[in-house]
Amino acid sequence: MLTISRELVDKVVAHARADHPDEACGVIAGPVGSDRPERFVQMENAERSPTFYRFDSLEQLRVWREMDDRDEVPVVIYHSHTATEAYPSRTDISYASEPDAHYVLVSTAFDEPQFRSFRILDGVVTEEEVKIVEVYG
């Protein structure tokens, strides 16, 4: 299960809407071992594409180092689909490389945004419940 604050959900959805029709992407960092997303980091989609995303490599290095320095991990890795449902595609599955992350998919293809979360491990996708809270307990 992914437990996430409403404020962070709103930020992810706002980013996805702002970049529509291109795919938006980013991470939400949190303390090592906490499984709690806290720090929203919007990333560039180096592909600037409606059907593909890739973190800019130098920005990724900078953000990953910053997380290391702060004893954080990418608790959530999010991206948007802009014409299809919020479910991992074959490419999403084959490139998934953070076994401990919650992969959040947002779809801006419909009137109401879809916000769903998945674990992707060794090519196997498992959808998980998303619990949205006002504040972390």
């Binding site: 991470v27 409606p50 890739r54 490599s57 299809t84 595609s89 490419t91 490139y95």
Partner: peptide, 12 residues
């Protein structure tokens, strides 16, 4: 030397 898997994917 730092190795990082690219974070990437797509709609297809």
């Amino acid at each position: 030397v730092t190795v990082l898997p690219a974070v990437a994917g797509g709609a297809r």
